[in-house]
């Protein structure tokens, strides 16, 4: 088997590959190999544990050209997909299956800006606070209390909104209809949606800061940016869940 230290293995398409870096050899032709297939003879390679950015030959940056990502995804699919190995031996077929599942998992994660950010956070050792709907359902089913910290800048808004939603549910039960209340909730919803969009802008600011650090090669200040991103994501999830609650109540 090949060396599993991912830092030694660079994909052939990596723009930043340092010359003279040790690279494992292709099992078939013995020349240079990449993470997924040999740049010389084109044979699929046994999978090595690398992160998704490395798999695509991208630096670990968050501003990502999704058109370039899609192009690379299609190009790699043509080399790695099991359909291409219909006539190959069992070993190559097994590698192709592993490699193309890794390719698909990586593409799915990187093309989505939020999943990409969460993935980077996890790569950098940041534990994510689960605030998803699933976590809520799970908490409901198991009877555990779910931690849900209200972002301070939203405290007042959330308090009012919850009162209104409660009122709405009461009215629904009684079969009543109050246009003024609906308008009030509608306004709050609009404000939350704006907030939601603004948070994505905030996240992008952190992306830029992170990418700048990666370019400069300094590690100082990384942690601060990662924590800031986590904070934005948590607030964003919170707002998303609120919007969902409002929609459910309005239905």
């Amino acid at each position: 088997m090949t060396d599993s230290r991912s830092s030694l293995i660079m994909p052939n398409s990596s723009p930043g590959q340092a010359p003279g870096e040790a690279t494992p050899r292709c099992w078939s032709c013995g020349t240079m190999r990449a993470v997924h297939f040999c740049s010389s003879c084109g044979k699929v390679q046994p999978p090595v544990p690398v992160d998704y950015f490395t798999f695509f030959g991208f630096p670990r940056k968050l501003n990502l050209d999704t058109a370039a990502l899609e192009k690379e995804f299609y190009a790699l699919s043509r080399h790695l997909h099991p359909d291409v190995f219909g006539q190959s031996d069992d070993r190559e077929r097994a590698w192709s299956l592993e490699q193309s599942s890794m390719l698909n998992d990586a593409y799915r994660t990187l093309k989505d800006p939020i999943k990409r950010t969460e993935y980077l956070l996890r790569l950098e050792g940041v534990e994510l606070e689960e605030q998803s709907k699933q976590a809520t359902e799970k908490a409901r089913a198991t009877g555990e209390l779910k931690k849900q910290v209200v972002p301070p800048d939203l405290l007042e808004e959330v308090f009012d909104l919850n009162l209104h939603l409660e009122e709405l549910r009461e009215q629904k039960k009684a079969g009543e209809d109050d246009p003024a209340l609906l308008e009030e909730i509608g306004k709050a919803k609009l404000s939350l949606e704006e907030k939601y969009d603004a948070l994505f802008g905030e996240l992008k600011t952190e992306w830029n800061a992170w990418d700048k650090l990666v370019d400069s090669g300094t590690e100082a200040g990384q942690r601060k940016i990662l924590d800031a991103m986590l904070d934005v994501l948590n607030r964003r999830n919170y707002v998303r869940n609120l919007v969902r609650d409002v929609n459910e109540a309005l239905e």
Binding site: P82, S101, N104, D105, Y107, R108
Partner: peptide, 8 residues
């Protein structure tokens, strides 16, 4: 709707 092969 995850592209296959897919893994977890």
């Amino acid at each position: 709707n995850s592209t296959i092969p897919a893994s977890a």
